[in-house]
Amino acid sequence: MADRPVLTGTRRALGGFRPSGALAGVVPFFAYTTVFLLIPTIVVVVGAFVDGSGRPTLDNIAALGGSTSSFLPALQHSLVLSVVTAVTGAVIGAVLAYAVSTARPDGMLKRFVTALCGVLAQFGGVALAFAFMATFSLQGFLTVWLTNLGIDTGSSLWLYQWDKGLMLVYLYFQIPLMLIVFLPAVEGIKPQWREATETLGGTTWTYWRRVAGPILMPSFIGATLLLFTNAFSAYATAAALISQASPIVPLQIGGTFTSEVILGQENVGKAMAMAMVVVVALVMWLYAWLDKRASRWLVR
């Protein structure tokens, strides 16, 4: 049922396909995206499987798993970091989105929170790392303030560790991103659904468990997966915060740009990049699968 419009659309396109002037209108777009999006993607995928002189090889991939390689631990860190901040961020962000949605639709509060979240979610990068250093480093105001109160916060080195400080900073852009992507779904909830539940004899708990919960679940899962890829791909904040080591994959890939390349491993960066693409593609596939299963009832 839901697929029908797609099918007819495709059929119409094929039926109406004539090498006419109409197609010339979209050539610039396809040319541009081919050069700057499709070819780079192909470069990564192909590059992962060739050596410095262009001969096919599996060495790049093998190098990732080698005992001297720090890639596997970094991948593990990246995955844990992304899962934890995606789930935590999604839960907190969803509650925030619900709270904001109950405010006046055109009110200042909502505009304010949405704009703020837009900035923190998409603009932050280096500035966010600075913000956390200014707050939590040894000289940071919160550290100083807590010390004055007699609370010892330790060495402040925690701020630069991937599973402590970095997680906290990531939450700082994951929660706002959740608000941005989840708010439309929450606002799509009709007040009639709650009232209908009540008149039919349901409690608030019934409403959340049987009506609002199931209706929001597909959007929630989708948003959580988006948060995962967002954290998994993030580079700027981590690069600005952690300068001593490369505990996560994006930093390792960045490292291949600046460090001396070991002979024969020119394309290891591409292999790492491809590993990232594979992870993201898996998540997207998972999303598509869940979406198809869980949302037969969605309007398409």
């Binding site: 797609v6 659309g9 495709t10 119409r12 396109a13 094929l14 109406g16 396909f17 109409a22 197609l23 209108g25 979209v26 777009f29 396809f30 995206t33 700057f36 999006l37 070819i39 780079p40 993607t41 192909i42 470069v43 990564v44 590059g47 988006l226 890829t229 998994f232 791909s233 580079y235 994006p250 890939i253 960045g254 740009f257 960066g269 591409k270 990049a273 990232m276 693409v277 993201v280 593609a281 997207m284």
Partner: peptide, 28 residues
């Protein structure tokens, strides 16, 4: 003029959401 291409164009335009910038750098 080309409504049949809508989905293709949409797909390409949304693709960068799934290709991390750091990966794009490598390929670029």
């Amino acid at each position: 003029r080309l409504p049949g291409l809508t989905r293709t164009v949409e797909f390409i335009c949304l693709l960068p959401l799934t290709v991390p910038a750091i990966v794009l750098v490598v390929g670029l």
